[in-house]
Simulated scan of single mutants.
Amino acid sequence: MTLPTDENRDLLTVVATMRAKPGKEQELQDVLEALIAPTRAEADNVTYALHRGAQDPAVFIFVEHWTNQAALDAHLGTPHLQAALPKIPELLDGDLVITPLHRVA
């Protein structure tokens, strides 16, 4: 298996983790899936992959790779993300946790 960071260790990896409120799983998934195509079209996005918990289907995780912090900052200001952000908190059980990472090994 290869990862984008195998080729470029300078990429910024971001893991965004969230849990849907009971009964809101599909609604949250729909909102998140709508972000995928426009985000993947962003020039400095390398990976934007949505995952759902295999044992806990209320858990959703984005695994993202960006060319740098400026690319992520630009993404955070895009119209498609700004349109989705107000919808997300009402669907979550707890907080959205965003973890930026740098590849070590």
Rank of each mutant, 00 (worst) to 15 (best):
M1I: 13
M1T: 14
T2N: 11
T2S: 11
L3F: 13
D6P: 00
E7D: 10
D10I: 08
L11S: 04
T13I: 12
V14W: 00
M18E: 02
R19G: 03
A20W: 05
A20G: 04
K21R: 15
K21D: 04
P22W: 08
P22N: 06
P22M: 03
K24F: 05
E25N: 11
E27W: 06
E27S: 09
Q29K: 11
V31N: 00
L32W: 05
E33G: 06
I36M: 03
P38I: 01
T39D: 04
A41F: 04
A43E: 15
N45Y: 01
V46F: 01
Y48I: 04
L50V: 05
L50P: 02
R52K: 10
R52P: 08
G53S: 03
Q55M: 07
D56I: 09
D56Y: 08
P57Y: 01
V59T: 09
F60T: 06
F60H: 05
V63T: 15
V63C: 13
V63H: 15
H65Q: 12
H65E: 12
W66A: 00
A70D: 15
L72H: 10
A74F: 08
A74T: 13
H75S: 01
P79D: 10
P79R: 05
H80E: 04
H80R: 07
A83R: 12
A84H: 01
K87C: 07
P89V: 06
E90C: 08
E90L: 13
D93F: 02
G94K: 07
L96Q: 12
V97K: 12
V97W: 05
V97G: 06
I98A: 11
T99V: 14
P100A: 09
P100T: 13
L101Q: 15
L101A: 15
H102V: 07
H102E: 07
R103G: 09
R103W: 10
R103F: 11
V104K: 12
V104P: 01
